[in-house]
């Protein structure tokens, strides 16, 4: 039993599918008790990375270890230490919620009495006690997600992989799941969380890695990522009747500021000094645009993500349909 060292470690991990580099030389370590976020758009290699750790895929090169155990050399010992919540709630539709939990416990060798006790406790903790005897097929999407997380915890793993836990869940459901994840972190569980919702990672994670096209673009603590951004001044201007080249015109008129158009009818202005709202609004109105709102914005992890990866966070979040935020 190895008690020191990282909970999870990947070294020069690489995996190709049909010639496409899904994971391309990824290295990182997750500390014990840490909530580590793996952020990126669809196809960035998040789920493949999880599969490489959990035994559902084998790397072309590099190594992965869990609790110091080489996942390739001793996959069963590594699997015994982890809980996995896949991106799809893939429990058994014909079984009840309670029976699903007991079955998952049995897969990890838990005796009948322990399975039943923990199953009942988890249903209570996850707010599913009243639905415990209902078949999984009849659960709502949020309930299915909560039960899938409970199933990943039935054998009390010290390390939990959560793949897109709130995708497709309504706002209330997503909040409940985030609260449960936060609770796990406080109890000392190491959590590896993949998500494309940046605000979720900012709210929950200790450290995050931005992953794009199979590579880690940046990795640091949320605080250290956001801190330099806080010195920046950001203004979001909403307006109607914007011309196609307004951003270029603004950049010409205000060369010290940075302008972006993240969505139609919206301009984002950034600078290292306080932003003069009046001249900006007048500039736009002189070009027949109707300014409806100008709001100062607190810089966030999303700004860091956009700056480092060049990807628009909003577009990334829209990739997954039905995601209620």
């Amino acid at each position: 039993m190895i008690a020191s060292g990282p909970a999870l470690e990947a070294r020069n991990l690489a995996k190709r599918f049909d010639g496409v580099r899904a994971v391309d030389g990824v290295s990182f370590a997750v500390r014990r008790g840490e909530l580590f976020g793996f952020l990126g758009p669809n196809g960035a290699g998040k789920t493949t990375t999880i599969n490489l750790f959990t035994g559902l895929a084998r790397p072309d090169s590099g190594s992965v270890s869990i609790d110091g155990i080489d996942c390739l050399r001793d996959p069963r010992a590594a699997q015994a230490r982890i809980g996995v919540v896949p991106d799809e709630s893939n429990l058994y539709p014909e079984l009840t919620g309670f029976d699903n939990l007991c079955f998952c416990g049995a897969l990890y060798g838990l005796g009948k009495a322990i399975r039943k006790k923990r199953g009942a406790e988890l249903l209570e903790t996850f707010g599913l006690a009243a639905a415990g005897e209902r078949k999984f097929a009849g659960y709502s999407r949020g309930m299915k997600r909560r039960l899938a997380i409970a199933a990943g915890l039935i054998h009390r793993p010290e390390i939990l992989f959560l793949d897109e836990p709130t995708t497709g869940i309504d706002v209330a459901g997503a909040r409940a799941i985030r609260s449960l994840i936060d609770g796990l972190r406080r109890e000392g569980t190491t959590v590896f969380l993949t998500t494309h919702y940046i605000e979720e990672a900012e709210r929950l994670c200790d450290r995050v890695a931005f992953v794009v096209a199979g590579r880690i673009a940046a990795l640091d603590s949320v605080e250290r990522f956001v801190q330099p951004e806080l010195a920046r001044h950001v203004l979001r201007i909403s307006c109607r009747g914007l011309g196609g080249n307004t951003a270029e015109e603004l950049a010409g008129g205000f060369p010290d500021f940075e302008f972006r158009v993240p969505a139609a009818g919206e301009i984002r202005v950034e600078a290292d000094r306080p932003l003069p709202v009046g001249p900006l609004v007048r500039f736009l109105e002189d070009r027949s645009a109707e300014v409806t709102e100008a709001v100062r914005v607190r810089p966030s992890l999303e700004d860091v993500f956009v700056r480092l990866t060049g990807l628009e966070a909003a577009a990334m979040a829209k990739e997954k349909k039905g995601g209620g935020r």
């Binding site: 959990t54 035994g55 559902l56 069963r76 010992a77 699997q79 015994a80 996995v84 896949p86 799809e88 893939n90 429990l91 058994y92 539709p93 998952c104 897969l107 990890y108 060798g109 199933a151």
Partner: peptide, 13 residues
Amino acid sequence: GRSFERLLLAPIR
């Protein structure tokens, strides 16, 4: 239905 993945993730040979 991907429920087979549950079995492949379990620490059994």
